[in-house]
Simulated scan of single mutants.
Amino acid sequence: MSGPPALYTGVVNDPSARASHQLDVVAFGFHEDQGQERLIAIGAVRWGEIMGLAHLERLRRVRDLLSVQGRRGAPTARPTCFSAAGFSAQLAMAAAESPDIILVVHHTPSPTMQVMLEAVLAGARDDAIEGVDVVVRPALAATAVDVLAADV
């Protein structure tokens, strides 16, 4: 991937459910080899809510809808959950078992730190890096379980 990712929000219609799905994060990256921009991640952001499997399933449903629409990169777009409150044990287990899921627990108080976090996440999502699960937590929120679960 070349260049910084483009970040947006969006809404995806779900005709069969007669519903629409809000996406808090829609990330696109440009691949020089393909000469075009493609979808690399879709995400939900919750500040004070512990995120669970229902959030992941909704993101997977949206990814499927985008794939059916023929959106470039949709089949491999990574479902990404951002939460300041954390994740359920079931969602953490799902992320541990599937390298395409990204969980981010973080509070980024300054614009400079936000840019740095986004750059790190963009790099971690690069197609040249295989088999990497990205789990991000601020230093004071990481627990012993987080450290023991990490590949260091």
Rank of each mutant, 00 (worst) to 15 (best):
S2D: 01
P4D: 07
P4A: 03
P4R: 04
P5M: 02
A6L: 12
L7H: 14
T9C: 10
V11D: 11
P15E: 06
P15S: 01
S16H: 07
A19R: 10
A19D: 15
S20P: 00
S20H: 14
H21M: 01
G29N: 08
F30N: 01
D33W: 05
Q36P: 00
Q36T: 02
I42G: 12
R46I: 01
G48A: 06
E49K: 01
M51S: 14
A54M: 07
H55P: 03
L56Y: 13
E57A: 11
R58M: 08
L59K: 04
R60N: 10
V62F: 13
D64V: 01
D64G: 02
D64R: 02
L65F: 10
L66C: 04
L66T: 00
V68Q: 06
G70V: 03
R71Y: 14
R72Y: 09
R72E: 11
A74V: 03
P75T: 03
P75N: 06
T76G: 06
A77N: 10
R78P: 00
T80W: 11
F82G: 03
A84E: 13
A85R: 05
G86I: 04
G86H: 06
F87A: 02
F87R: 03
S88F: 07
Q90F: 04
A92E: 15
M93V: 03
E97H: 08
E97S: 05
S98A: 04
D100W: 08
I102T: 15
V104E: 10
H106G: 02
H107A: 03
S110F: 09
P111I: 00
P111R: 05
P111A: 00
P111W: 14
T112K: 14
M113V: 05
M113N: 11
M113A: 14
E118A: 04
A119Y: 08
V120A: 12
L121P: 09
A128G: 10
A128L: 06
I129C: 01
G131C: 00
D133V: 04
R137W: 03
R137Y: 06
P138W: 04
A139V: 02
A141W: 14
A141M: 08
T143E: 10
A144Y: 11
V145W: 14
V145N: 15
V147I: 13
V147F: 11
V147E: 14
L148R: 09
A149W: 13
A150G: 12
V152D: 14
